[in-house]
């Protein structure tokens, strides 16, 4: 895999290399100020991620526009979906559709919270 690493850029998280836990503790100081620092990091991440969330969303809306132009705005216009119902002799929420496309299994897991799974 060495070769591919050269072909496509690929970076380790840069801070990980720069700072060990001890360095981090020294740098941040486990003190009140460190709490303020963590808070700052979170705000910074939230700010930065907005830019790539926006770009990725725009990509999807661009795809949507492309499809709207060829009369494929809504799912009921998908001919492949209609073929599925035809071939399987069913319709939305029909018997076969219920078997394959719906679930009845949602599990109440709340009362299991206290039972001892380990902390990994």
């Amino acid at each position: 895999m060495e070769a591919t690493k050269e072909n496509y850029f690929y970076a380790e998280k840069p801070v990980g290399q720069l700072l060990s836990r001890r360095d981090f503790l020294k740098a941040a100081g486990v003190s009140v100020s460190a709490i303020a620092i963590s808070g700052y990091v979170v705000t910074d991440i939230v700010q930065k991620r907005k830019s790539y969330i926006a770009l990725r969303q725009q990509g999807l809306y661009k795809d949507d526009k492309r499809l709207q132009k060829i009369n494929l705005a809504g799912s009921h216009q998908n001919a492949s979906c209609l073929k599925v119902y035809q071939d399987m002799g069913t319709k939305p929420m029909g018997e076969v559709a219920e078997q394959l496309l719906h679930t009845k299994t949602y599990v109440d897991r709340s009362n299991l919270l206290m039972q001892g799974a380990h902390h990994g």
């Binding site: 969303q57 949507d64 809504g74 216009q77």
Partner: peptide
């Protein structure tokens, strides 16, 4: 056949997309 899809489907990937897709239909 296996790759036909609509705009409604592709916006599933964005928050609000499933809602918008469901409302269209």
């Amino acid at each position: 056949t296996m790759n036909v899809y609509t705009g409604a489907a592709t916006i599933f990937g964005a928050s609000g997309g499933v809602m918008e897709a469901a409302l269209r239909t």
